[in-house]
């Protein structure tokens, strides 16, 4: 039944999420203008990767556009779904738990499943973006670079997990307004690297540093959220 609670909380943010994703990460007329013409945006190092060298110009551009879209979508999903007051109509993370205190359910389960719901939501948005991008390319008659796109999508999973966990943690110790402002700042800071982050795996090696950072951030954020939520007095 706790999932019903999460659905009640999440449903109101869905229209905003869809609109935001469409505006910032959806199909765009100038998508093919991004990429190798501007290597500093796409990532000069990535262009030298074995996988990139195997791709034609159009495929490279398509991959570049997807890497940007999936990254933006993941960040937006985390921002909107994981709390920070937006998902819960500006109530704090503490209040999220407070309303379930008289129900026979552990606080950790409420917090954990809420985080899981955010993560699942972010993944669904990612899958939607992937499908839309493939459809977009097919309609344009461009060959779909499936392997690089799949790798970018795969790397977006730990990124989404880390980001939603961080969002969930920030709302437990910051007031909603500050949490929203700080996460918007984080989003703004991440925008310049939006093309390249999820394309790292295609350099030809596993991005251990990035994966380790995601795992560490996820672990710390979840542990902090659970600890704070379980010990807190109401």
């Amino acid at each position: 039944m706790i999932w019903y609670r999460h659905w009640l909380e999440t449903r109101q943010i869905l229209p905003l999420l869809v609109i935001s994703v469409l505006l910032l990460a959806g199909p765009r007329a100038d998508a093919l203008s991004f990429g190798p013409e501007n290597p500093t945006r796409f990532g000069r190092e990535m262009l030298q990767s074995p996988l990139a060298r195997q791709l034609g110009r159009d495929e490279l551009l398509a991959w570049s556009a997807f890497a940007e879209r999936i990254f933006t979508s993941v960040f937006l999903s985390g921002l909107l779904l994981a709390g920070n007051g937006l998902r819960s109509q500006a109530i704090s993370g503490h209040h999220v738990v407070e309303c379930t205190l008289t129900l026979p359910i552990a606080r950790a389960k409420v917090i954990g499943t809420r985080l899981a719901a955010s993560f699942i939501g972010a993944l669904l948005v990612g899958a939607l973006v992937l499908s839309a991008h493939v459809m977009d390319l097919l309609l344009r008659g461009v060959d779909v670079p499936l392997a690089p796109m799949a790798q970018s999508f795969a790397f977006s999973v730990p990124t989404a997990l880390a980001w939603t966990a961080f969002m969930g943690a920030s709302v437990t110790f910051l007031r909603p307004l500050w949490a929203i402002l700080s996460s918007l700042l984080g989003f703004a800071l991440a925008l310049p690297i939006r093309h390249i982050v999820t394309a790292f795996p295609s350099r030809g090696d596993v991005p251990w540093e990035g994966l380790s950072a995601c795992v560490a951030l996820t672990g710390l954020a979840v542990a902090f959220t659970l600890r704070t939520g379980s010990d807190r007095e109401y």
């Binding site: 609670r5 909380e9 819960s88 209040h95 407070e98 309303c99 008289t102």
Partner: peptide, 10 residues
């Protein structure tokens, strides 16, 4: 039933 009735705003 607490003094402040905790009901979800959403």
């Amino acid at each position: 039933v607490p003094e402040v009735k905790d009901l979800y705003p959403f």
